[in-house]
């Protein structure tokens, strides 16, 4: 797949203005919409459609911090690791395990308030991790690439995401 930053015409960075990016995606999609190319020769129509699909994929990749980080790592030449990066620290694993157990209990007893409290704490952690990741990426852009740190922060973000997905499932269950 083409580099999503290039496709959307934005400078590669972890910290992006998503409102601006959304606008850029809308503008590009409008220009590339098949209706606009209905009268064009088939080759051109196909190209426009292909480009439109690419633009949508690039937008999906960049709006999510996890896939955005993956795209940046690829640009930085950090090889993809099937295991998702370095092993998580014992502290992180302990915290995640405790939170998952607490969530399972709250879900079983239908305690929505508790679930909200757990989710709030984890969202707080997510913000902290995102801030660290932003900093590590800006260092990398400045020539100080610390791949293990980037990968372990990204791993942390995936644990958080997974937890928040479970929160969503639990709340759906109970509503």
């Amino acid at each position: 797949m083409a580099d999503p930053f290039t496709t959307l015409g934005v400078a590669p960075a972890f910290s992006l203005d998503l409102t601006q990016l959304a606008q850029r995606h809308r503008d590009l999609s409008r220009t590339l919409h098949p209706d606009r190319h209905a009268a064009a020769p088939p080759g051109e129509r196909r190209r426009a459609l292909g480009h439109a699909i690419e633009v949508n994929a690039a937008w999906r990749t960049l709006r999510d911090p996890i896939t955005r980080a993956e795209a940046l790592l690829e640009r930085l030449g950090v090889p993809r690791d099937e295991r998702g990066g370095p092993k998580a620290s014992p502290e992180l694993l302990m915290a995640v395990m405790e939170q998952r157990e607490a969530l399972a209990e709250a879900r079983a007893s239908g305690d929505v308030e508790r679930i909200d409290a757990l989710a709030g704490a984890v969202r707080q952690r997510e913000q902290e991790t995102l801030a660290r990741l932003t900093e590590a990426f800006s260092r990398a852009e400045g020539g100080e690439l610390d791949a293990p740190r980037l990968l372990s922060l990204l791993g942390e973000l995936r644990f958080v995401r997974r937890f928040l997905d479970e929160v969503g499932a639990a709340l759906d269950d109970l509503s």
């Binding site: 099937e82 998702g84 990066g85 370095p86 998580a88 998952r100 990968l151 958080v160």
Partner: peptide, 13 residues
């Protein structure tokens, strides 16, 4: 033993 998969967020004890 407490382990986790950073690729998907699974945890196992």
């Amino acid at each position: 033993g407490l382990v986790g998969a950073p690729a998907c967020g699974d945890v196992m004890r």
